[in-house]
Amino acid sequence: MTLTPAAHGILPLQTLSELVDQGVVLSASALDGDQIQPASIDLRLGTRAWRVRASYLPRKRTVMERLSDVVMHEMDLSKGAVFEAGCVYIAELQESLNLPQGLSARANPKSSTGRCDVFVRLLSDYSDAFDDVREGYSGPIYVEIAPQTFSVLARTGTRLNQLRVKRGTVPKLYTSDCGVDLTGDLVGYRARRHAGVIDLDNVDGHDPRDFWEPLYQNKGQLLLDPGEFYILASKTAVVIPVMEAAEMLPIDPSVGEFRVHYAGFFDPGFGTEEAQAAGSRGVLEVRCHETPFLLEDEQTVARLVYEPLIARPVELYGQRGSHYQGQGLKLSKHFKPW
């Protein structure tokens, strides 16, 4: 494996490809051609999932050993299965890891997953934390799936989350505040309760009017109702330099009692002129907590944390096509244009 002299950072596409070739990242079937992104690897569901009565961390046990304490029934994903809103599931992934010392990993939901209000987290054996995979870990990985508003249909091969591999202790370069845009005619969408099932592999296959209520400008303000899910957009453009990657902090109590952005990864090149995407906005997935909250235009609702790559990726975000490069206010790829 050839690494640049850079001390610590996130591994780019070409190095991730080397890890696959060398068996550091393993898979039950050959990787799809577009599975490796500029600074991450999409993860695919395996053939089995389990309905569980509670979320859990394995801690001093494997994921499967701990599963026996909470499992309700097993599901076959080979022909597709519905994950019901309000329920919790654990699913096996086709990919597994054999990380050498010096390499660790972190996972996040994909953008399309978060925009459908599906909460997912990575699990690894003997772990005390979701999404983070310790240095030198060798073993299977799993995903916890908890649809919040919509029930969803998924199957073997569906991609719900993504993995970044990191070398060493990666420094936080800087942060930037992300304010909300409430000044346009259309300012956002609110999820409809009791809607139908979203097929997570059916792109442009759903009528947005069946799932979403449009929200219009009202004096630059928006009242968030507790328990409701909103799609909003950032006030200013988001730009991720080609030698950096960013993650949006999922919860920051200092900016309000709500959760912003289930899908926190922004890959290098997002919103850049070089990738023909200047002006790209960040889409904000917002869920209000216990009390109503009044948002105002330009109010900070999230923060981006930027980290370095060990080398420039051979491709930037969106150069092989993307549903979200150059985006404004936008629903997930599953929905037809409004």
Rank of each mutant, 00 (worst) to 15 (best):
L3D: 07
P5Q: 04
P5D: 03
E18K: 04
D21M: 07
S29T: 06
L31E: 09
L31T: 12
Q35G: 13
Q35W: 11
I36M: 09
Q37N: 08
S40E: 01
S40C: 05
L45I: 13
G46C: 04
V52D: 07
R61K: 11
M64Q: 03
L67Q: 13
V82I: 15
A85V: 06
C87Q: 04
Y89V: 05
A91L: 01
A91I: 01
E92V: 02
S96F: 07
L97D: 10
N98Q: 15
N98K: 14
L99Q: 09
Q101A: 08
R106Q: 09
N108G: 11
P109G: 00
T113R: 01
G114M: 04
F119Y: 13
D125L: 02
S127P: 15
F130M: 02
D132S: 07
G136L: 10
G136D: 10
Y137E: 05
P140H: 01
I141S: 03
E144F: 00
A146T: 15
T149A: 13
R155M: 00
T156G: 10
G157S: 05
R164N: 02
R164T: 02
K166P: 01
P171A: 10
P171V: 12
L173P: 05
V180C: 05
G184F: 11
L186K: 14
G188H: 07
R190I: 00
G196C: 03
I198T: 02
D201Y: 00
D207A: 15
D210C: 03
F211H: 12
F211C: 13
Y216C: 12
N218M: 06
K219H: 15
K219R: 13
G220P: 14
L224T: 08
Y230L: 00
A233K: 13
A233I: 15
S234Q: 03
K235V: 03
T236Y: 11
A237M: 11
M243G: 11
A245L: 04
S254F: 00
G256Q: 11
E257T: 07
D267T: 15
P268S: 14
G269Y: 02
Q276A: 06
G279E: 15
R281P: 00
V286D: 02
V286R: 09
R287G: 14
H289F: 14
F293M: 06
L294T: 08
T300G: 11
A302C: 08
V305N: 12
V305W: 14
A311K: 01
A311P: 06
A311N: 00
R312S: 09
G318V: 02
R320D: 13
G321D: 12
Q325L: 11
Q325R: 13
G326I: 12
Q327S: 11
K330H: 12
K330P: 10
S332A: 14
S332N: 09
H334Q: 12
W338K: 09
